[in-house]
């Protein structure tokens, strides 16, 4: 079963005469364990596509099956449930400023039943160790560098053992070196656990992490079969 299976997906902002289509009949498949980069100029619709796959936005036309959940006609409850099985990484780290790194990672685990507080903190500690921050577990985001914060965000996304990771420009706020470090770390951990990644970027410096690059322009996928090194 493919983690992401999209057929004839179209989406428009506004209604009636003012409707502005941003996605036109998209077909896209992400295979298990595959790392897919979505590139394209701004306004090409890639971020909208990501929010649809992430169940953050209601569907309009077409079908979109994510981790076995059909999103066309899904209820809010079904979408909330699906989001718990997806790890999100944002352009900004979006960590809660009043919580330590460990507490931030543990927040993601609170939604998963059967874990005690002790389990959650222990697993958060393991995840932070995996991203090389075992000496920063009790720091707040304000006390960390940009690269360290984004690594905490990676740990938070992976802590729930998601079926899919969605990342939006995760390197945009970082310098070259720390940006590269973060995506390679993400790739390494995802490959270890076999988690597929769909990553939106127009940062040419990180194209090397991809198994496959999908380019978008004007709401269409222009060369779905493009292969990258």
């Amino acid at each position: 079963m493919q983690p992401v299976l999209i057929e004839k997906l179209s989406y428009a902002y506004g209604t009636g005469a003012l409707a502005r289509p941003v996605l036109r009949e998209i077909d896209l498949v992400v295979e298990p364990g595959e790392i897919v980069l979505l590139t394209g100029p701004s306004g090409s619709g890639k971020t909208t596509l990501l929010t649809l796959i992430g169940a953050l936005r209601g569907m309009q036309d077409g079908t979109c099956r994510v981790l076995g959940q059909e999103l066309a006609g899904a209820t809010e409850a079904q979408r909330v449930e699906l989001r718990r099985r997806i790890g999100f990484i944002f352009q900004n780290h979006n960590l809660l400023g009043f919580l330590t790194s460990r507490q931030n990672v543990a927040m993601a685990l609170e939604l998963h039943p059967g874990l005690s507080e002790r389990d959650r903190l222990a697993r958060a500690g393991e995840m932070l160790a995996a991203v090389g921050l075992s000496d920063r577990t009790e720091y707040r985001p304000g006390q960390l560098s940009g690269g360290q914060r984004q690594r905490v965000a990676v740990a938070r996304a992976l802590a729930v053992r998601p079926g899919l990771i969605l990342a939006d420009e995760p390197t945009a706020a970082l310098d070259k070196q720390s940006g590269s470090d973060v995506v390679h770390l993400l790739r390494e951990l995802a490959k270890r656990d076999g988690v597929p990644i769909l990553l939106v970027t127009h940062d040419p410096r990180i194209l090397d992490v991809a198994d496959r690059i999908v380019a978008m322009e004007d709401g269409r996928i222009i060369d779905p079969e493009a292969e990258a090194a």
């Binding site: 909330v80 999100f88 809660l96 400023g97 927040m107």
Partner: peptide, 15 residues
């Protein structure tokens, strides 16, 4: 002032 963080929590599956 924490709107982004709340939105992030919603994205993570908080209701």
């Amino acid at each position: 002032s924490h709107l982004k963080e709340y939105a992030t929590l919603k994205a993570m599956g908080y209701s």
